[in-house]
Computed example of a mutant assay.
Amino acid sequence: MTGKAPLIDPLEHLLGYQLRRASLATLSALSEAYEALDLRLTDAIVLRFVGANPGCNQGEISKALGVRRTNMVPVVSGLVERALVARAAADGRTHALTLTQAGAALHAQIDELAHANEERFFGGFDEETRKVLLRALDTIRARAES
């Protein structure tokens, strides 16, 4: 296709398409940053949830993320094996999750990388624009979840 005009993007006017492209760009960059810490994006997200909610369980995290509980089992088990998360008996078969000392240290690095990623992609937006975007995205998620 040398010498030809670039392809016309017939999807460029679709908000959902543009949202997906933007999401892929931001999450890909964040995923690459977490790889330097030997973490997958999912691992980092679970660590952030446990850090923000000490004593939560994997069922609660899976519900908050909108994923199946069975998908959470290998993620949490991997974090426990790496001594980043500790399990403690809560009630019945439920285990309360907390960050270990190593997990808390890694959590701080994850948080720093997440803030840097936010600044890279959204730092040019004023506070009011950020609020509008967050409300719009919250509305989209609510519609998808209802």
Rank of each mutant, 00 (worst) to 15 (best):
A105Y: 01
A116S: 06
V50G: 07
V73W: 02
Q58E: 09
I8G: 02
T98F: 13
M1C: 12
T100L: 05
F125I: 08
M72G: 01
L47W: 11
A102E: 15
T94H: 15
A36M: 09
P10Q: 04
L47C: 04
V46Y: 06
G59A: 11
N117H: 02
L47A: 05
A89Y: 07
A105S: 15
L65A: 07
S146M: 09
D43C: 03
K63T: 14
E32M: 11
H107D: 15
K4T: 15
K131S: 13
L134E: 13
V75P: 00
A5Y: 02
G123R: 01
A96Y: 05
T100F: 08
R82T: 04
G78R: 12
L19H: 06
E35S: 15
A64D: 05
R93Y: 13
G124W: 00
A105V: 08
H115D: 10
L84W: 00
L79G: 03
A36D: 11
L39Y: 01
I45G: 00
H115C: 02
K63G: 08
L113H: 06
G124D: 06
A144V: 03
R20M: 12
E81L: 01
T139M: 02
V132D: 10
R120H: 10
G3K: 05
A5E: 14
V67R: 10
A89N: 06
S31N: 12
A136I: 01
L11Y: 14
E119K: 09
A33P: 03
E118A: 15
L137Q: 09
E119H: 13
L137P: 01
N71K: 09
A44M: 07
Q58F: 02
T94E: 12
A83W: 04
